[in-house]
């Protein structure tokens, strides 16, 4: 019987492959095992375990850190779908802890207070996969060069306002189209401009997409928001505060899941959007003092 191939290259492929399995799905922020069950029953393809959802992190202020491992383990026990958790940007020990409790995906996240204002985590050092936020192609490819196996837009977490996620997805896709349209001899200069390895720029040029799966995140609150992000090219959606800050989380979550699957069927999304109860109130980007998307470039 052949042995398993456990080289770092294979591990990275396996980690990118897990993200492929999440495609077309919705990853939901949850803070308790009960919420995790609600999310799973509503059709979440994974949950993000965290102590406070971004809207409450904004409200509370102060330093926001990795969640209590006991709380994360409680959520791992409660559901059968993949469980993700966040560590602070650059905090490789928080990441080591999350790996030690066998988390399925680490989100090195701008939602938490950055632990390092210069360096991101060297994600090649880990066996578990990382997802990172990006608001443009350069950020995305820098995170991938550091070892991220999945990307999401940053959006503006905890606002219920989709404008930043839209802007980041459009920015990323327009930069991808620009790279695709370049002559091959122009890619070297583009790599220099983007401050990323040439190989990654070449990949984007040849394949017309990022080398990893790309989700939308940050401000998605309604089935229509989720379908908008999918029509703009997202391969799936993270919903944070939008579900458990709303009037009827289970119903809203299930509606968002269906809207992501059938994101071009307006008649269906219209039905899904009926009587969902109160959406999260939301705050506008001009009303907030802290722009999380400016963390970690």
């Amino acid at each position: 019987m052949a042995a398993r191939d456990d080289s770092p290259e294979t591990r990275y492929e396996l980690n990118k492959d897990l993200a492929k399995m999440l495609k077309g799905g919705v990853i939901m922020d949850v803070t308790t095992p009960e919420q995790a069950k609600i999310a799973e029953d509503a059709g979440a393809c994974a949950v993000m375990a965290l102590e406070r959802i971004p809207a409450d992190i904004r409200a509370a202020g102060g330093v926001s850190r990795m969640s209590d491992p006991a709380m994360i383990k409680g959520i791992q026990e409660a559901v059968s779908i993949p469980v993700m958790a966040k560590c602070r940007i650059g905090h490789f020990v928080e990441a080591q802890i999350l790996e030690a409790i066998e988390i399925d995906y680490i989100d090195e996240s701008e939602v938490l207070s950055p632990a390092d204002d210069v360096y991101h985590i060297d994600k090649h050092k880990f066996k578990v996969p990382f997802v990172c936020g990006a608001k443009n192609l350069g950020e995305a490819l820098r995170r991938i060069a550091e070892g991220a196996s999945m990307i999401r837009t940053k959006g503006e977490p905890g606002t219920g306002d989709v404008v930043q996620a839209v802007s980041h997805m459009r920015q990323m896709n327009s930069e991808i189209r620009r790279v695709v349209s370049m002559r091959e001899d122009e890619l070297f200069e583009e790599a220099k401009e983007l401050q990323v390895p040439y190989d990654l720029v070449k990949y984007v040029h040849d394949h017309e997409k990022l080398p990893v799966v790309n989700f939308a995140a940050g401000g998605v609150a309604t089935p229509a928001d989720a379908a908008l992000m999918m029509q703009l090219g997202a391969e799936g959606v993270f919903v944070g505060s939008g579900i458990f800050k709303s009037g009827n989380p289970a119903k809203r979550a299930a509606a968002i899941v269906k809207a992501v699957t059938n994101y071009t069927d307006a008649a269906l999304i219209a039905r899904l959007s009926e009587n969902l109860g109160e959406a999260m109130v939301g705050i506008n980007k001009d009303e907030i003092e802290l722009l999380m998307a400016e963390r970690g470039k």
Binding site: A2, T10, L18, P82, E102, I103, Y105, K127, V128
Partner: peptide, 13 residues
């Protein structure tokens, strides 16, 4: 095979 750490690649007969 457990969580993501149990994901693996191999040659199979």
């Amino acid at each position: 095979y457990g969580r993501q750490l149990g994901s693996h690649h191999m040659l199979l007969d």
